[in-house]
């Protein structure tokens, strides 16, 4: 108990600060992933000459482990394209890449799976394709795929633990640092694990509520 106070409670500000960084990295990465994934899905579906390029991008993002992507983005990209300029940026970029692959597939299957009748009824009312996409297809796709999309955010949060490896001061980074400093892994790592599990559990419960509500409304 004394150890707990000394190691955990005294450093609570560092741990909570790390938690805040985790939240930031995850949020930015997820928004970026949504944009990249949606763009990739659209290119894959509608821009014929770039189809294989988009497909390669999607497959690369999905089939490379997040850790490998992190090292690659952090240590290779800056010298090739001059960016990212900070490890924090490298962190959310790699996380965004990883998730954009899955989100692109989610969007693609959602859009393709959209009932053809929806599109045709819009066209027969004189709606141009872009407006149809914006007002008819996209809202439904987002709604139907929302459980999968939200689950991807969960994956981002879980993967964010690895950005500690490139010295991004998230929760995991501080936990491991404190472990090395104080040589008392039990309390710190257990508390850290508990914080992560609690966070993910709360999020997944919210997602489950949402999914159940949606299933009740739309079947």
């Amino acid at each position: 108990m004394d150890v707990f106070r000394r190691v955990v409670l005294n450093n609570l500000d560092a741990l909570l600060g790390g938690l805040w960084v985790t939240v930031q990295v995850s949020a930015i990465a997820f928004v970026l992933a949504l944009l990249l994934g949606f763009a990739a899905a659209l290119v894959r579906l509608y821009v014929r000459p770039a189809r294989y390029l988009a497909e390669t991008y999607i497959q690369f993002c999905r089939n490379t482990p997040i850790f490998v992507q992190l090292m690659w983005v952090a240590y290779v990209w800056p010298d090739v394209v001059g960016w990212p300029r900070s490890f924090f940026a490298a962190g959310f970029t790699a996380l965004a890449l990883q998730s954009s692959g899955y989100l692109a597939e989610t969007f693609r299957s959602g859009i393709q799976g959209m009932d053809r009748g929806q599109r045709e009824s819009a066209y027969s009312l004189g709606m141009p394709p872009l407006l149809t996409m914006r007002r008819i297809i996209l809202p439904q796709v987002l709604l139907l795929m929302s459980p999968a999309i939200m689950n991807q955010f969960l994956v981002v949060v879980k993967s964010s633990t690895l950005v500690s490896v490139i010295a991004v001061p998230d929760l995991m980074y501080h936990a491991l640092r404190l472990t090395r400093v104080w040589l008392e892994p039990i309390e710190i790592l257990s508390v850290t694990a508990f914080l992560y599990i609690a966070m993910v559990f709360v999020l997944s419960t919210l997602i489950k509520w949402h999914t159940d509500r949606m299933r009740a409304r739309f079947g």
Partner: peptide, 23 residues
């Protein structure tokens, strides 16, 4: 199932390697 699906792998990996032996 809920416990292990909600645990980040890296977190659990370090916990198993550093904490479990001590426990």
């Amino acid at each position: 199932v809920e416990l292990f699906r909600n645990t980040p792998e890296y977190v659990f990996l370090t916990w198993v390697h550093f904490v479990l032996p001590l426990v």
